[in-house]
Design a binder for these strands. Structure first.
Lengths: 329, 329
DNA sequence: TTGTACGCGTTATCAA
DNA sequence: TTGATAACGCGTACAA
């Protein structure tokens, strides 16, 4: 078994209380004693047991992250942002992949609270009334990232406006028939908002909305590919396609390539997210850049403020996006 | 404050021992009592405190993962594999990004052991003697993934052979001048092995090794781009380039595009890893497929075996790779 | 089948 | 400036 605090205490000829004091460098310990104890700790290679400590102090310095899937493109960078500031404030992160599965979600929520995480960052599934209630009833602070619900703290971007902006840009580029591959239609954030933004931009310019130009996707490559095929084989095909995620936009690029359509001359393509790959592929992708790293970092920072009881101006943070013009448009 | 076990005990009119028994469904508790207690637990929404439990039973059901950076392309899928089987065996994962930084590595090692993780998966930095010794001296089981060191448990692929195989394939395709963009030259696994495989394949066919065709990279896009530029502007340029990572291969593709070289007719390109994007870009990338998800899953499975004291045939697991022929060759 | 009571390794209170 | 000792919430002898 490992060493305990009492082992170093007896070795150093002091009480456990004193050792504990130097460990948490609370004042009121004579410099000489302090040095002595530190010495012994080093010699014995004593490592405090954080579990025992947690039991006593009632915090664990760990937070939980719930995401759909770390292996999809959007999340790694967000998680990186979270981890960086978590690390800065001496928190560790427990990573949970929910696969948008309510049961896994439920289970993780349970074990995270059993494991007494100090807080949670949630960016998983669409937040139903039931889930929202659950999240609120937890005795644990939760920060939402890239999603929103009632009065829960959240960091987002203005999806509606961003989407609208992209369409306006496309219109300015002279496109008349603009197709869209949407996100999930029951997703208020990345789904509905972006569709509405698309429609709004068109309506503001007095244009008709042609439903045949809107096809449903699920953010993933394959739905973009299928949707692209569909749109691009229309008798009157669009001259531009806006996909609600970069990954779907890649699918459209593939579809266009198979149909031997030149990008952007015969078909312009735009995405949403600005995942790392978007600038690396040929042709590089025009897209709406979400500050993914920052969404994570800011979300985690907000969480630390809540945990420290710091003053917070607002619990609803809206970050800036930007339109990045590249080679596909 | 939250409910404690004694609260449900008194509410159910039994002792804490009995509640504990139904919680851990140890036998020897009368069915009626069992039901009763379960009922009360549900009613009161009692959630056991895993920290207190851990202190007693001396395990935490959590493991640590050390990786360089979750936001680079190789790792998310490996982590996903780990998390899936961890979840299967009721473990949670604490994710640590080291950035290949010895200090962060050191720090994480310390907090992971303080937090009493049951085991660790390590796939970070090159393992120096010092680090190796440290890893071994930990009282915690460690499994290496995509790296190796002395007698530590490890899951890898045969990098040397895989690299050799790719070059042989390129030679069979009729390529005479094959360039390579390498990994790090102090990395015995993904660096040196792949370089050696390249050389071996050439030598086996009685070919000269032209050092001007070998340029150093660091697995990342930009080094591939730079290396590609260099190789492709040689007076006698290669007809094929093999990059030691897919991300670097993407850089080569970009370089080729800028030089208006047709792929694969004027320049064939091959990568290593088979990250998800490689099949999605246009043209899709010929590459060596590493079973990333499985490397994580198998590594974690091995760790659970070690933790459960199960019989293990071998602690050195070598997984199969495959050559995936796509449009860039 | 059930209950009492001790111990897990800390921190913190209170006295000295 | 220090030390004894009571918590923290749970599991598990041991006794009943």
């Amino acid at each position: 078994m490992s060493l305990r605090i009492k082992d170093v205490a007896s070795q150093a000829g002091v009480s456990v209380a004193t050792v504990s004091r130097v460990l948490n460098n609370s004042n009121s310990v004579k410099p000489e004693t302090y040095e002595k104890v530190l010495q012994v700790i080093k010699e014995m290679q004593y490592k405090p047991n954080a579990i025992a400590r947690s039991l006593k102090v009632k915090n664990t310095k760990t937070i939980g992250i719930m995401i759909p899937d770390i292996s999809s493109y959007f999340f790694p960078e967000v998680v990186r942002g979270i981890e960086d500031v978590a690390n800065m404030y001496d928190y560790n992160i427990i990573l949970c992949n929910t696969d948008l599965n309510r049961d896994k979600e439920q289970k993780y929520l349970q074990v995270l609270t059993e494991k007494q995480v100090d807080g949670m960052i949630f960016m998983s599934n669409i937040i139903t009334k039931e889930l929202g209630a659950k999240l609120k009833s937890l005795q644990i602070p939760v920060v939402l990232v890239s999603t929103d619900y009632e009065d829960l703290p959240a960091v987002t971007i203005d999806n509606h406006e961003a989407s609208k902006r992209m369409i306006e840009y496309l219109i300015e580029k002279g496109h008349d028939r603009i197709g869209m591959i949407t996100g999930k239609e029951d997703d208020p954030i990345a789904g509905i908002s972006r569709i509405e933004g698309y429609k709004k931009a068109l309506q503001d310019r007095g244009r008709e909305i042609d439903c045949s130009l809107i096809v449903a996707g699920d953010y993933r490559f394959n739905s973009g590919y299928q949707g692209g095929k569909k749109l691009l084989t229309l008798s009157q095909r669009p001259t531009a396609i806006f996909a609600a995620s970069d990954e779907m936009a890649f699918g459209v690029i593939k579809a266009a390539a198979e149909l031997k359509l030149a990008i952007p001359t015969e078909i312009a393509i735009a995405g949403f997210d600005d995942i790392d790959m978007s600038q690396k592929i040929v042709p590089s992708l025009t897209t709406i850049a979400q500050p993914m790293y920052n969404m994570g970092a800011v979300g985690m920072r907000l969480l630390t403020k809540i945990l420290n009881g710091e003053d917070i101006e607002t619990t609803k943070i809206v970050l800036d996006y930007s339109l990045v013009e590249r080679e596909t448009s």
